[in-house]
């Protein structure tokens, strides 16, 4: 058993369908305010200051509350109270599925208990045991560390790596982009994801503008644009890794993304994501 989100667990049990989980996640996004919105509606932070913190958050992996305290806009006690209240009011995926009529309310507690038992002892991706051949790669280490941080920062997608296996032609999703890193380390980095995952990244890129929608129907965005979007995401991922490598005097350069290529060798990282489906393939070159 691998580490997974509750929605995925329910799909695997046959309790709900993937489209039900997608619908529930959308309801959660619409219903659950992020901490900044929550602080503004609670009148402890102005909208202007919340925007300042949001802006800062796009450049860092620090949490909203930590930044607010650091900028002197909220006290630690205020953040603690806001987080507690936000959690108390938060609609969970299980509740959202029940509210939408996809799951029987009477079964939720039992399923949550089963999920806890299933997940007991599962490890986070940072402790994932990597094959010996790639365990000493600084680039791989950086990519695995930065990947969940950037999906969270750009598109509010939470994810973790479930497993790492040698590439053997595992099934890929519809959108595929690859960037190549060359120099002291040589790797091709391929991201494969479904339309839902790519559309959420697209919304993240476009969402910073007031005249743009923050959510878009993946069906309305062309496949080429979704590919382009994950190619751009990979650029940022690899570019951020290059920054980290440069601090360790490891010099590499980055080549522009290519699309639709299936890897021939490497390592396949199965990803569990809060939106859509994705996997990462790192191929030594």
């Amino acid at each position: 058993m691998a580490r997974k989100f509750f929605g995925q667990f329910l799909i695997e049990l046959g309790e709900v369908q993937p489209e039900h989980v997608r619908e529930a996640v959308t309801l959660m996004d619409d219903t659950n305010p992020v901490l900044g919105e929550f602080a503004v509606s609670a009148n402890v932070l102005s909208e202007r200051d919340a925007n300042r913190i949001n802006r800062e958050q796009r450049r860092t992996d620090r949490k909203f509350g930590d930044l607010a305290v650091g900028m002197g806009l909220l006290t630690t006690d205020q953040v603690r109270d806001l987080v507690r209240e936000q959690k108390a009011q938060r609609l969970s995926i299980g509740q959202a599925l029940c509210q939408l009529g996809h799951l029987d309310t009477g079964r939720l507690d039992d399923l949550l208990k089963k999920f806890s038992l299933d997940q007991a002892g599962q490890v986070a991706n940072r402790y994932l045991q990597l094959p010996e051949e790639i365990d000493d790669s600084q680039l791989v280490d950086c990519i695995l560390d930065l990947f969940p941080k950037l999906t969270q920062r750009i598109a509010r997608i939470q994810l973790f790596t479930q497993s790492c296996e040698k590439w053997s032609g595992q099934e890929l999703q519809s959108q595929i982009a690859t960037v190549s890193v060359r120099g002291d380390e040589n790797w091709d980095i391929t991201l494969s994801c479904d339309q839902d995952f790519a559309a959420q990244i697209h919304a993240g890129f476009m969402g910073g503008f007031s005249n743009q929608k923050t959510e878009e129907d993946p069906e309305e965005i062309s496949s080429t644009l979704l590919d382009d979007c994950i190619g751009e995401f990979l650029n940022i991922l690899a570019g951020s890794a290059m920054d980290e490598l440069e601090k360790q005097a490891i010099t590499v350069c980055l080549e522009p993304p290519v699309f639709g290529n299936t890897p021939v060798e490497g390592y396949h990282f199965a990803i569990q994501a809060s939106r859509g489906a994705a996997s990462l393939i790192l191929s030594p070159a």
Binding site: R153, F205, A238, G239, S240, M242, D243, E246
Partner: peptide, 24 residues
């Protein structure tokens, strides 16, 4: 995409850019 403090950014300034903006 390689950040505004990377050596490529320094090269940008040397070649005449007046600003380097990081992605995202």
């Amino acid at each position: 995409s390689v950040g505004s403090l990377n050596s490529r950014s320094e090269e940008s300034f040397r070649l005449g850019a007046f600003q380097v903006i990081g992605k995202p």
